[in-house]
Design a protein around this nucleic acid. Structure first.
Lengths: 255, 255
DNA sequence: AAGTGGTCTAGACCACTCG
DNA sequence: GAGTGGTCTAGACCACTTA
């Protein structure tokens, strides 16, 4: 710690101050790297500096940088490629198009997911949406409605709410032209990357949603409410999805 | 690598053999530790040898043992306690009683979960159960039915299927006496520890299940099918749970 | 051949727990 | 004070990718 001349000095908080606000060096490095991601110094898809360079930049050993990268990679914010480098994860990567979609056919794996946008309009936020997105009731939000299918019948009806100030300029036309996924469009078109989300699931009967899926109004549907965050734990999307689970199921792993 | 005299010799597969069957040293150590867990050399709740001892036992450096323990701790198989030691995770730990239960009240956190066993009987395995548990159709299985509540109305109706040869001797009386959780009873009473599970969710209407929950037969219910594994990826439990999601939701995190 | 991440080692020092 | 896990370093060597 004595012979360093780092560009961004790092302070290893000494013992006396350790409880309760202490974080080890590698976690401080991680925070600095999160800063570089959040401030768009490092953008999706780009290769970040090598571990050796980062070690020099932060004035720590390569092992310490490695531990920070380990955690960021475990959180799917970075992707390592042996021999090539470490890259900022991107929804524009084909393997990540529907990374957050947990719906699977009862037998086999999901193939070619397709999104069919139905409408896109700016409306005032209702109470539930405003609360989720930390906005005042009535603040403009964009409501996007769409269907998802996996080759045959539509299986999901989504109502997606986005803060209008962040995504102003989103139109049905742009959505229809997008051949990748919604999140890749939001990332490449608006510079907002979705990094994680929370979902709440329930079983409901909702005639209007069932109608969009071509089902009788009394059909039970899986209602999936999702709150999605970008860097800095900032909520930027809230959605309600109605899933037809007659031939598909929502899959999770517990450990 | 040359001056080791390990009790359990470890082979670092050399370059030529590396593709595709290669695993680094720390992963081989992890496998050995999984062996110690699966063979019950290390039992739930017990403290395992210190990192220094393990390093000596396996003939590797402490850092390599550390990486193996890191992964096992990340998978919730081991629990580290600074200053005390590393322990085998246990469902008998109060914090783990309902570790696999993802149901939460719409506002706030779940309090005092209670299990009400209804019946426990040995029956021949039907096709779906047999397939899940890798048994022949007709093999004896134990069917346990129960309700869960969280202070008021019952919210979950569970049908739990267990391979009878593994859990023979499980009775309604033992279940009623158990004050912790089903998995803690199965662990302490039968030496089988559940380590992870997969769940499949759908929305259904099921009059008989609704009746157990005191709901109209047409109420939509969240159907949760769970396949649970013990060491060695061996499936030992399959269950169907019907959740009343009027005031509760199933919560997941996506990243 | 050069550069990247992946593995492994050896040793130092720290913080926490317990007797 | 002794023993444990937690952090950090420095250096070696390997495997993979690209040019």
């Amino acid at each position: 710690m004595n012979s360093r001349t780092p560009a961004n000095p790092v302070i290893h908080i000494p013992r006396a101050v350790r409880s309760p606000a202490f974080s080890p060096l590698y976690r401080q490095i991680k925070e600095q790297m999160l800063g570089a991601l959040g401030s768009k110094e490092w953008t999706p898809g780009m290769m970040i500096p090598s571990e050796t360079e980062l070690a020099a930049r932060f004035g720590v050993s390569q092992g310490t940088v490695r531990k920070a990268v380990d955690e960021l990679a475990a959180e799917n914010l970075l992707v390592r490629c042996q021999g090539k480098g470490t890259f900022v994860a991107s929804h524009c990567d084909p393997r990540a198009f529907y990374r957050f979609l947990r719906l699977q056919p009862d037998d086999g794996c999901r193939q070619r997911t397709r999104s069919i946008p139905l409408s896109c309009a700016e409306i005032p936020a209702e109470a539930a949406v405003a609360r989720a997105l930390c906005l005042e009731v009535g603040t403009p939000v964009i409501l996007l409605e769409r269907l998802l299918d996996f080759g045959a019948q539509p299986v999901v009806f989504d109502q997606i709410f986005l803060a209008a100030d962040v995504f102003s300029g989103l139109t049905l036309e742009r959505l229809q032209q997008e051949e990748r996924s919604l999140y890749s469009l939001l990332e490449s078109g608006f510079g907002v990357r979705m990094i994680h989300a929370e979902e709440r699931l329930r079983a409901v009967v909702e005639a209007s949603a069932a109608q969009h899926l071509g089902l009788p109004g009394t059909s039970p549907l899986l209602l999936v409410e999702r709150l999605t965050f970008t860097y800095g734990e900032r909520p930027v999307e809230w959605r309600r999805g109605f899933y037809d689970t007659a031939q598909y199921h929502y899959r999770t792993v517990l450990s």
